[in-house]
Design a protein around this nucleic acid. Structure first.
Length: 585
RNA sequence: GGGCCAUUAGCUCAGUGGAUAGAGCAACCGCCUUCUAAGCGGUCGGUCGCUGGUUCGAGUCCAGCAUGGCCCGCCA
């Protein structure tokens, strides 16, 4: 299915050339959805911008364009309005025919991209031996959604979990494990070392208070880096246990991701340093090997370096990130690498990308993008914490969302005098709770800080997951009541638009392709949320004004098609946000 | 001291250089013999932080200022 915007753009290009000559080939017609439905469906704003170069008034330019513009297959005759807007209204038969094509297509009329790219989405990235907490929420949810959109567009997506599985903190963890839990290191042991957070805290406390322990920990780091068997075994035990805990969260959130932690790049780090050195970029500064980059200064106003190798010879995360860039572009063949990491690391990525560019490690056409997001804050506007001031564990956060969703559901079941099974309540509460957490996060512009509120995300009204799930459930209610099988509607079924609310719904449905293009390019899932919320609103208005099952034929079938297309669009759109729907709630 | 981000209705937030700046929540008023009212309609609510500039046109771009958040050498 050819998108409406593509077709219109092509027609405008021809008209512009016909009116003003071939030197204007490829001029952007500045087509966009109208700001107000009374202006039609699309407006072209280019006449105003051509006024100066063409030395003519915008309305005259607009009328010259319109004279040469042939959009009669799609639109009513164009109208010129205001200072020189060209307003286009799609023809009813065109709308109907487009909707029909969408409804019959599992991809809803959106073809995969012609040239798929290898896209890496780097997201989530918790630390081994620490539990996933609220700080991992946004990267995990936003990253998953971005990956889903790229996948749907037809790109070849590699989802990478750059877990923190290396570094100096492993010294104390290994030492503590060896001493507190030696059984775990037996040959085929699968001893559960219990609460990893408590374990981490114990190790940290000993490290801070016991000098002998500190010394043994430093030795353990050296042993681990040297590939010592015992240290390696201990490290693996810690990684395995953490991985199992992470997986529980990912399973619950419906997220797939491939682990490729920092340790993966260890063998490649020396080469990074060597290459930078060979190229003359490496400078020794206060005992460390660093690269100075342009445009960054520290507190004292001195040039800010990127530390590649510490004075003790160890590597740090900048080195790992550089090695990852090389591996991802060379071995993985990535053309686009998206780092879904909090905005606090903007500086770091700017430095790393600049060094990679200087070193010639970013091939032509390869795009490295930091996709930043703001911090999660409590309703007081401060950093989101528990009442006792602890970091909120992701598991607890999800549990609370689900239990609140369950309480709401039980209240309503009681109030409505319904009888529902425990398994129904369980499933609905889990889905609504998880969906609400995801949607609340995704529906906001990711770059701003995010004020976390259970009450708001679980609200039954407004721009929330429950509101949208309910719109979907309403369609399913129609099919249940009317015994409708949406997969087997008669071939001769046709969409005929009559009521204003049908037109509004129809026009909105046809904008799906434009929204997805935009989200795939600009990586703002909140635009998709906005689209789906508006779709739900328009569906509810239609539902309110137009009866479906009681309508006479052929109106009844036409409306059934509209309902089905709405449900399919909601389901697809929500799935690209990582949100699952319910048949009943 | 420097850098990045933010500042839009009482609150939480959308807003792609275009026409009269929008939602949701809260408040108030209506609508269930009809496909789930978890819905729909309506009312109220604005110096788009401030001052300049660019532009035919600025919430949007630029500069300065104010306020807030985050970051700034060997943690990641």
């Amino acid at each position: 299915m050819k998108s409406t915007l593509t077709q219109l753009t092509a027609q405008f290009d021809q008209a512009i050339v016909a009116a003003f000559g071939p030197e204007l080939t490829g001029t952007d017609p500045m087509l966009e959805p109208t700001t107000n439905p009374k202006f039609g469906d699309y407006q072209a704003n280019l006449a105003m911008s051509l006024a100066k170069p063409l030395k003519n008034n915008p309305r005259a330019i607009a009328s010259q364009i319109v004279e040469h513009l042939d959009v009669s297959a799609l639109c009513e005759p164009p109208e010129i309005a205001g200072p020189g807007f060209i307003n286009l209204r799609l023809r009813t038969d065109y709308l109907e025919q487009q909707l029909q094509q969408m409804q019959a297509d599992p991809r809803l009329g959106i073809p995969p991209v012609a040239q798929p790219q290898r896209v890496i989405v780097d997201f989530s990235s918790p630390n081994i031996a620490k539990e996933m907490h609220v700080g991992h929420l946004r990267s995990t949810i936003i990253g998953d959604s971005i990956a889903r959109v790229q996948e749907f567009m037809g790109h070849d997506v590699l989802r990478l979990n750059h877990v923190g599985d290396w570094g100096t903190q492993f010294g104390m963890l290994i030492t503590h494990l060896q001493e507190a839990c030696p059984d775990a290191l037996e040959a085929d042991s699968s001893v559960d070392i219990g609460d990893l957070v408590a374990f981490y805290k114990q190790a940290k406390q000993r490290f801070d208070t016991d000098d002998d322990f500190k010394t043994r920990s430093r030795e353990a780091v050296v042993a681990l880096q040297a590939g010592d068997d015992t240290a390696t075994k201990a490290w693996k035990v810690l990684c395995t246990q953490s991985r199992q805990e992470f997986q529980k969260i990912y399973d619950r959130l419906g997220i797939t991701i491939q682990e490729r932690g920092e340790s993966f790049y260890n063998p490649l780090l020396a080469d990074v340093v060597k290459d930078l050195d060979t190229q003359g970029l490496l400078v020794e500064d206060q005992g460390a090997k660093v690269v100075f980059v342009d445009g960054f200064t520290n507190k004292a106003g001195d040039p800010l370096p990127l530390i590649i190798q510490k004075s003790d010879g160890g590597y740090n995360y900048a080195t790992t990130d550089l090695a990852a860039i090389r591996y991802r572009t060379q071995q993985d063949g990535a053309q686009r690498v998206l780092y879904v990491v909090d905005a606090g690391q903007s500086n770091h990525f700017a430095l790393v990308f600049q060094v990679a560019a200087k070193a010639g490690w970013i091939p032509d056409g390869v795009e490295l993008t930091h996709v930043p997001f703001g911090v999660v804050q409590g309703e007081d506007g401060k950093k989101f914490k528990t009442r006792s001031g602890e970091t909120v564990r992701l598991k607890d956060l999800l549990d609370e969302a689900v239990s609140r969703a369950r309480a709401d559901l039980e209240r309503r079941i009681e109030a409505e005098g319904r009888q529902e099974s425990e398994s129904f309540i369980q499933t609905v509460a889990e889905t609504v709770g998880i969906d609400a957490v995801k949607y609340a996060d995704l529906s906001q512009n990711r770059t701003s800080n995010y004020i976390f509120s259970f009450d708001k995300m679980l609200a039954l009204q407004g721009n929330t997951a429950p509101y949208m799930l309910y719109a979907y459930v309403r369609v399913q209610g129609i099919s249940r009541k009317g015994n409708i099988d949406f997969d087997h509607l008669p071939d001769e079924a046709r969409i005929h638009l009559e009521e204003a609310s049908e037109f509004a719904l129809a026009r909105h449905l046809l904008q799906l392709d434009e929204v997805l293009d935009e989200v795939a390019q600009d990586l703002y899932p909140n635009r998709l949320c906005q689209y789906l919320f508006e779709l739900s609103q328009k569906f509810n208005q239609f539902y309110d004004r137009c009866s479906v099952l009681q309508a006479p034929e052929p109106q009844r079938t036409s409306r059934l098609l509209l309902c089905d297309l709405t449900a399919q669009t909601l389901k697809l759109g929500l799935s690209l946000l990582g949100i699952s729907v319910l048949e009943r709630m």
